[in-house]
Computed example of a mutant assay.
Amino acid sequence: MKFYDCIDNLGKAKYLVNFHDETQTYPDGTPRLNVRKFTNKRKRDQFVRSLKKMDYLQLGTH
């Protein structure tokens, strides 16, 4: 299952997006999350829209 999660104001990062693409996992089988850090909300929203077009599902809302 492809998924992503958005986090705002985490430490010095203004906007953070964690996402998993179904292929990268740790040896024990847990998903390995990719991370993208953004300082601009428009760029973050543009990236999230591209994830949605690739059938990613949002996990939780913060």
Rank of each mutant, 00 (worst) to 15 (best):
M1V: 13
M1R: 12
K2V: 06
K2E: 09
K2P: 03
F3K: 06
F3C: 10
D5Q: 15
D5T: 09
D5L: 13
C6Y: 05
I7P: 03
I7G: 04
N9G: 11
L10F: 08
L10Y: 07
L10H: 07
L10W: 05
G11D: 08
G11V: 08
A13E: 05
A13K: 09
K14E: 06
K14N: 07
K14R: 14
K14Q: 11
Y15R: 02
L16N: 05
V17C: 13
N18F: 15
N18M: 13
F19A: 09
F19S: 12
F19H: 14
H20Y: 15
D21Q: 10
D21H: 04
E22L: 13
T23R: 11
T23P: 01
T23F: 07
T23Y: 06
Q24F: 11
Q24M: 12
Q24P: 01
T25I: 10
T25N: 12
Y26R: 13
Y26S: 06
P27W: 02
P27M: 07
D28V: 12
D28P: 07
G29F: 10
G29L: 05
G29N: 05
G29Y: 11
T30L: 11
T30S: 14
T30I: 06
P31G: 09
P31A: 12
R32P: 02
L33F: 15
L33P: 02
L33W: 11
N34L: 15
V35P: 00
V35W: 01
R36T: 02
K37F: 12
F38V: 07
F38W: 08
T39P: 01
N40L: 10
N40F: 06
K41M: 08
K41D: 05
K43R: 15
K43S: 14
K43I: 14
K43C: 09
K43V: 13
K43Y: 15
K43E: 15
R44M: 14
Q46D: 04
Q46L: 03
F47A: 07
F47L: 06
F47N: 08
S50T: 06
L51D: 00
L51F: 03
K53D: 06
M54W: 00
M54K: 14
M54Q: 14
Y56C: 08
L57H: 02
L57W: 00
Q58N: 06
Q58E: 13
L59F: 01
L59V: 10
G60L: 09
G60D: 04
G60A: 10
T61Q: 06
H62N: 06
H62G: 03
